[in-house]
């Protein structure tokens, strides 16, 4: 019955069933979660680093169960999940054991906002990125040429969001150099991701794929 539900849905249904004290639904939901956790434990299914916080939520919420077998299963899964969560925390700078003050967070958000507003792709340190955009033909699914500024806006928006996530909980004052070098790295990752995604999802043969890669490499010369 619940096998088609996403984990988010399972969580909200579980909370609803708890409030309504619907024993039958609670039991069926717990069985579904036990099945998925068992998959995770037996390696038939693994949880990616970036998905680990969602999975942790699932373990935490269902840990309220009175079913002892499920509790043991959830504990085992938590032990297996911890290294993956740690990697996630490292990736996003959430691994500090030090408490961050409210004032520091406020200062970070003010600084990030200032840097975001004052950013331009014309900055000398973003020269290579600008050159990559210059060699891109941005098209819709009917191969009609689109305004490259739309793509620039999307990538810039995404890079700024990722930079925000990485720096918002910085323990120390964010200097301009740190902000722009982080933003640049995020821009670069997104651009290379975009290229790989395009190559992997378009009708390229092996040879033409290499040619496309060479065009990209020429652009950053």
């Amino acid at each position: 019955m619940y096998s088609d539900c996403s984990e988010d849905e399972l969580l909200s249904l579980y909370q609803k069933s708890k409030i309504e004290n619907n024993i039958n639904d609670i039991s069926m939901l717990e069985n579904e979660v036990a099945k998925r956790v068992d998959l995770f434990l037996t390696k038939n299914c693994y949880v990616d680093t970036e998905a680990s916080p969602y999975f942790f939520n699932l373990l935490r919420v269902f840990n309220e169960t009175s079913n002892t077998d499920l509790k043991i299963l959830l504990k085992k899964a938590e032990v297996k999940l911890i290294p993956i969560l740690k990697k996630f925390d490292e990736d996003y700078g959430l691994d500090s054991k030090e408490e961050i003050s409210e004032e520091q967070i406020e200062q970070n958000l003010t600084d990030i906002n200032y840097f975001e507003e004052n950013f331009s792709l014309e900055r000398p340190d973003f020269r290579q990125i600008k050159k990559v955009f210059d060699v891109i033909d941005f098209r819709d699914e009917n191969e009609n040429l689109l305004d490259i500024n739309e793509l620039k806006e999307k990538i810039e928006f995404s890079a700024k969001v990722k930079t925000y996530l990485r720096l918002c909980l910085n323990l120390y004052r964010i200097e301009s150099e740190l902000y722009y070098s982080t933003l640049k790295a995020e821009f670069e990752k997104l651009i290379v991701s975009l290229l790989m995604l395009e190559l992997g999802s378009s009708n390229f043969s092996g040879e033409s794929m290499e040619k496309e890669i060479d065009k990209f490499l020429e652009a950053i010369e």
Binding site: V135, I136, D137, F138, R139, D140, E141, L146, E150, L151, K154, I155, S158, L190, S193, L194, L195, L197, E198, S201, S202, E212, K215, F216, A219
Partner: peptide
């Protein structure tokens, strides 16, 4: 001389 990128790809990203 151009690298073609589709809107769908950018949206997937």
């Amino acid at each position: 001389k151009k690298v073609v990128v589709h809107r769908n790809t950018a949206d997937l990203l």
